[in-house]
């Protein structure tokens, strides 16, 4: 009994409950046919949302007003640049990865510079930079139809006993990031800043350095997502990052992280990402049209945030 009560107090548990209920509804409707495949597909697609979700979570944790809106354009830029550099050759894989990460680093540095030097709210800073990043991606990747290197395509789509390999890697990565958040100086500093930036500063935390690291981390993870995603979907496309703007924020919120900052968890991101994918699958199986699917997705996000509530007044 105490175990159940303890569990129900964890913020992240609800995303898993939602995920299970949606999966069950789908399984009942189809009579259990293909229910395992659905889980496998959900793991595959949720992986990409989780990668950017973790970065977004660290940014959101640093307090109100901190959101990275440049994630979608960074995904597109990183994917386009990596595909063009590698040009479908396995030998260039390491170079392509390094350049993809360099894109992320550059975006992170640029975002932070705007926030610090121009003293503008992070939302506006990342929004303005996303314009520039997207334009660069469009200009650079025009007419891009390059296949990813076979090795990358294989790695991102490989499965062991029906479990996607990339998902296993990212589950382990999420576990590491969970330790980083709760057990390292950096993670605790992020939480402290989110709770009270001034108190954190008085306690001797270099607030600006932590914020800098957080924005760079988010951009790096977006670049990583773009790299893997273009391998997974057989090439980069310029609007492939688009859906991750809402998704990255939604999984953080549904996963039980407080939008007011200072209170976060990593497991919830996985639960929420699976929930989002399974929800769309469920609506698909029920035969809902594209319009209904969009409306339901939107309403559920609004409902979750309404129930979770905002910052304490």
């Amino acid at each position: 009994m105490t175990f159940v009560t303890q569990l129900s107090q964890k913020a992240w548990i609800w995303s898993f409950v939602g995920m299970f209920m949606v999966w069950l509804a789908t399984a009942v409707y189809t009579g259990g046919k293909g229910s395992a495949d659905v889980i496998s597909a959900a793991l595959s697609f949720a992986t990409f949302t989780v990668i950017v979700g973790i970065g977004q979570m660290f940014v959101i944790t640093t307090g109100p007003g901190n959101v990275d809106l440049s994630i979608p354009s960074t995904i597109s830029l990183s994917g386009a640049v990596a595909m063009k550099i590698m040009d479908g050759s396995n030998g260039m894989l390491v170079v392509g990865f390094a350049i993809s990460m360099a894109c992320g680093l550059a975006v992170g540095l640029f975002n932070y510079t705007l926030i610090r030097v121009l003293r503008i709210p992070p939302i506006i800073a990342t929004l303005s930079s996303s314009f520039l990043i997207l334009s660069t991606a469009i200009a650079y990747g025009r007419g891009l139809k390059i296949k990813p290197p076979p090795l990358l395509a294989e790695f991102t789509t490989a499965q062991i006993l029906g479990v996607p390999v990339l998902a296993i890697v990212i589950i382990m990565f999420a576990a590491v990031m969970s330790i980083v958040l709760h057990r390292t100086f950096y993670g605790r500093a992020v939480l402290a800043i989110g709770q009270n930036a001034r108190a954190a500063w008085l306690a001797g935390i270099n607030v600006e350095r932590i914020r800098f690291m957080t924005y760079v981390l988010s951009a790096l993870l977006a670049a990583l997502c773009g790299f893997f995603l273009s391998g997974f979907s057989g090439g980069a496309s310029l609007n492939m990052g688009q859906e991750y703007l809402l998704a990255s924020i939604a999984v953080v919120v549904i996963g039980g992280t407080s939008v007011a900052g200072g209170k976060s968890n990593v497991p919830g991101i996985w639960g929420a990402a699976m929930f989002m994918f399974l929800l769309v699958t469920m609506l698909n199986t029920f035969g809902a049209s594209a319009g209904i699917r969009l409306i339901m997705t939107g309403l559920i996000i609004v409902a979750v945030i309404t129930i979770a509530g905002g910052e304490e007044a």
Binding site: P64, V67, I123, L245, L246, I249, A250, V253, V259, A260, S289, A290, G291, I292, R293, L294, I295, M296, T297, G298, L299, I300, I301, V302, I305, T306, G309, G310, E311, E312, A313
Partner: peptide, 21 residues
């Protein structure tokens, strides 16, 4: 006392969905 960004981001899907319908 909700963050407007999250609410409006969710609503953008609702508006788009209705428009598509």
């Amino acid at each position: 006392n909700l963050p407007s960004i999250v609410v409006t981001l969710g609503m953008s899907f609702v508006w788009l969905g209705i428009a598509v319908l």
